[in-house]
Amino acid sequence: MSGEKKTFSVSKYSKLIILAVFILALSILRPKAFLTVGNISNVLWSVSVIGIMVSGTIYVFLLGGIDLSIETLCGLTAVVIVEVVTHMGNSVGGVIVGILAALGVGALAGLLHGFVITKFKVPAFLVTFATQSVFLGLSMIITNNKIVSCTKPKLFTMIGSTWVSIILMVIIAAFSWFLLSRTVFGRRTYAVGGNATAAEISGINVAKNTILCYVISGLTTAIGGIVLASMTQQAMASTGSGYTNDVITAGVIGGVSLLGGQGTVQGAIFGAVLMGLLNNGLNLMSVPSTQAGLVKGIVIIVAVAFDAMQHADQSRKKVRKVVKKA
């Protein structure tokens, strides 16, 4: 990407190398299982939900914020669409209304987060920590703690089918990439995340920009919920469980700084794919999925600690410079 700093392009190459090494290792270790069209599309399919969601939550990360409600909002929107579709007699119209309703819920959730964060100056993690509980409760109330399944109509089950969900991820990622790297809004988001005071002085409405970022995050989470509901052809309160960590990990692997101001959509998608490969690889090597949490957690800590170290280094250099000037 032009417009990004030089050192970034170097780390971009290193990412491609990591990816290549990974694929190579898996193809050698498990040639018959890994290198099949079925398995590859399987990997992409399994990362599509994470990819879709991280395409939107990256805006929140760029502001130095976080969203702990990803998984329960994903569950709530999944519940909403499934309930709407089943209540409208599994009709095509029901699917459309359901999609709109789920998107509406996602946007509203984002609006609420953005509003509380900007108007009351409450840290993002606390607000989303609280709403996580609210969304979970709402899903439980709507479903009455039951699994709601939905296998019809075709339009609904199609959304989560392998190729549709992959294409959906590509479209959303592409749109998000365009918004972030090509439009004024994207430019401003980097500026707000990098230095909110300077952004304000440069005439940017920081509050409005922040709220918009949370709305985008809510929207992509809702799309993730819709796809997940369609994939599994059912929804319950715990749909989406574990996705908060997965989305954050994907972002962090992809070079998105949780301290704000740095990261790209293509990086985040790369992170999602790498995580999909990792999960797939561990799976093919018969490592139980419960242990993946260990790897993810360590990845997050190492990445953020490294980030924090660089930040500290830079500010130390600054101090040295200032001292020299004095």
């Binding site: 976080i66 702990l68 954050i248 419960t290 949490g293 993810k296 997050i300 924090a308 500290a312």
Partner: peptide
Amino acid sequence: LHVPEFIGTLATMGIFRSLTYI
């Protein structure tokens, strides 16, 4: 390591849970 508290403990939340399963 200067990792922000909520990120660090969110990560260890996953790590400790994983260890428990292991």
